[in-house]
Design a protein around this nucleic acid. Structure first.
Lengths: 226, 226
DNA sequence: ACCTGAACACCGTTCAAGT
DNA sequence: ACCTGAACACCGTTCAAGT
């Protein structure tokens, strides 16, 4: 019963990079990372695959551009005046929420290392690190730790969403399955993992994410006093 | 001039899961993540693609098993008696070095979220967190922060290696290219990124990685005093 | 300048048929 | 029980040909 979503409508506007990226995001949101193909995309845009190549260099540019649209939204959100620490938390949470809503962004971000979406995050976090007043020569260490952590959580979220999707589970079913697997590990070899199997089942990704940010902020704070 | 590496030798041993994984690792090391295909693999093992499916359920199991072989090596390395902090640093560095030598492990690790390779890391780090004497209800927050950070750095390493490979650059050329791109960003919008473009060019991944671990350890230390 | 769509060179996976 | 290899249903990308 695979029914191809036929597009009955004729194309009204002409093709453009923006329309292509918009359609890419819709495909990625609906069907995950595997959902973005040139065939599905050209079908949706009522054109041929070759037409897309006129506006975009290839798939990786497409994915990065889609990712950037989401990241930009989170990084350009207006910020209330607050301490640098509070601003970092707010920025990180805003990004977390976007990635939670669009899990494919998590892996796209890492894939586009050094490119615009990552730079947006680097910049916003970095400005706050600067405002924190830590020594100049620790700026890079501080941001890169924050950035790596954020990318780690993002990638994990993307992977979890991906696995849950392919196995047709929702999030709580997936957590329960992992938790059960961990509980069944050898007691001699994996005592710690067994001990966190319970907490893991009930854990809240968002809270844990913030706790990790706070841990790193605490560490950065120590840099200032050193 | 694409010369297919012909295998002139007949197969001596019979096929086995271990031989398949060993060959997978060789392919991944030589040609990166894209190098692992059932065709390349069956060519190398002097068999057909179908034969591999007799021993292994599919590509993702193959990748996870290959990843696990490398991770196990790092996590089972004998440890000298030391403080929990020093042990965590040693474990993390050992893992970093393996991933540096086998960058594909970085993305495979994230892809196999919740599975054995990740659990090995979770367990070893967790045992040391426990030894640190922080409150029981902070164990999960502490390990998951460390783990996410390690996965973030790993993924980034994998992505960098991948980009450098496709562009045919070595690491220093790649760093220089990113650094130059950052220096060319708009001065109003990206002051911080521009300011770290210089340090970035000369930075040492291994040192930065360890600095991040230390930052998180400092934060965990604060948990004990709280 | 922009679009079409067939064709190319790949993929992972399945499966009837062999030993 | 284990292996073979053709076949299936996909991919991303290219390109001669159209408008």
């Amino acid at each position: 019963m695979v029914k191809k979503a036929r597009h009955t409508h004729r194309r009204e506007e002409s093709l453009s990079r923006d329309r292509i990226i918009e359609a890419s995001i819709e495909l990625l949101d609906r069907s995950g990372e595997g959902g973005l193909t040139f065939r599905a995309l050209s079908d949706r845009l009522a054109t041929g695959p070759g037409a897309i190549y006129w506006h975009v260099s290839g798939k990786s540019e497409l994915l990065t551009a889609a990712c950037d649209a989401i990241v930009a939204r989170a990084m350009n959100a207006p910020l209330v005046r607050a301490t640098p620490e509070a601003t970092i938390r707010a920025l990180a949470l805003g990004l977390f929420d976007e990635i939670d809503a669009h899990p494919w962004v998590g892996s796209a971000l890492t894939l586009a290392a050094g490119e615009l979406p990552m730079v947006r995050i680097l910049e916003r976090l970095g400005q706050q690190i600067r405002a924190l007043g830590v020594p100049d020569d620790t700026h890079w260490a501080a941001v890169s730790a924050l950035l790596s952590y954020v990318l780690g959580v993002s990638g994990l979220n993307a992977a979890n969403a991906q696995v849950a999707r392919t196995r047709g589970m929702d999030r709580s079913k997936f957590l329960a399955a992992v938790s059960t697997a961990w509980s069944g590990l050898d007691a001699e070899e994996y005592p710690f993992t067994r001990s966190v199997a319970g907490p893991f089942r009930a854990h809240n990704d968002r809270t844990d994410f913030l706790a990790g940010i706070d841990l790193i902020l605490k560490g950065i704070d120590a840099l200032r006093r050193a």
